[in-house]
């Protein structure tokens, strides 16, 4: 059930390489922290792993097989800005149902209140919307979760609440998670393995 990036390289068109020969393996249930300066390619790697982008070279393997091209993607990504990731013309209930789940326990752990489901996206705050995005990304088919600056724009209390809930769920379901963040304090609290992205890139070390 592992997620493996094998010699993944990426560049935009013919510009210089953003990163080359990245090797990274994440086991189910593992919590991996990924840090590095802005623009070093963390988000691009996350998008490649979640199937949003194709690597210029190399492959991403899930269970030693290439990622599925269609159907529910087992690796889900949560973005930094929830208001962009939710269709403003959809009621919140439909947003959740898009992932195919309305697991009450999951919603409870993420602190989603039942009356929020009847509302529209513009009637909820950023933190509330982000909880919905996380719930959607944790649909029944999800095996790995990538949190790309997932709580950066939220206040500390909300951050703590959300991460408590997410870590609970992830532990219970044995989901592997990659946390991308600039917040080293947060990473140290959460992760079992810490990766400095520039090192991963420059020295072509396998972790």
């Amino acid at each position: 059930m592992q997620l493996e990036a094998r010699n993944v390289s990426f560049r935009y068109r013919r510009k210089k390489w953003l990163f080359r020969d990245i090797n990274l393996t994440v086991q189910p249930g593992e919590v991996v922290g990924l840090a590095g300066p802005s623009g070093c390619g963390k988000t691009t790697l996350a998008r490649i792993l979640a199937g949003y982008e194709k690597p210029s070279n190399g492959t991403v393997l899930f269970n030693d097989a290439p990622l599925p091209k269609t159907g529910y993607h087992p690796i889900q990504l949560v973005f930094q800005h929830p208001e962009k990731a939710i269709n403003p013309k959809w009621p919140m209930k439909a947003v959740l149902e898009e992932a195919g789940n309305l697991d009450v326990e999951l919603l409870e752990r993420l602190g989603i209140q039942e009356n929020w489901l009847q509302r529209w996206p513009n009637e909820l705050s950023g933190g509330e919307l982000q909880r919905f995005c996380i719930a959607r990304a944790l649909g029944p088919g999800t095996q790995f979760l990538i949190a790309d600056e997932m709580t950066t724009m939220l206040d500390t209390i909300t951050q703590a609440q959300i991460w408590h809930g997410v870590m609970d769920i992830v532990r219970n379901r044995n989901i592997g998670i990659i946390i991308i963040s600039h917040d080293t304090v947060l990473l140290k609290r959460l992760v079992s393995r810490y990766i400095d992205f520039p090192l991963l890139n420059k020295d072509k070390v396998s972790y």
Partner: peptide
Amino acid sequence: AEYVEVSKRLGK
């Protein structure tokens, strides 16, 4: 839009 890309990854 991000929500369209997300929808694709959700197998829609």
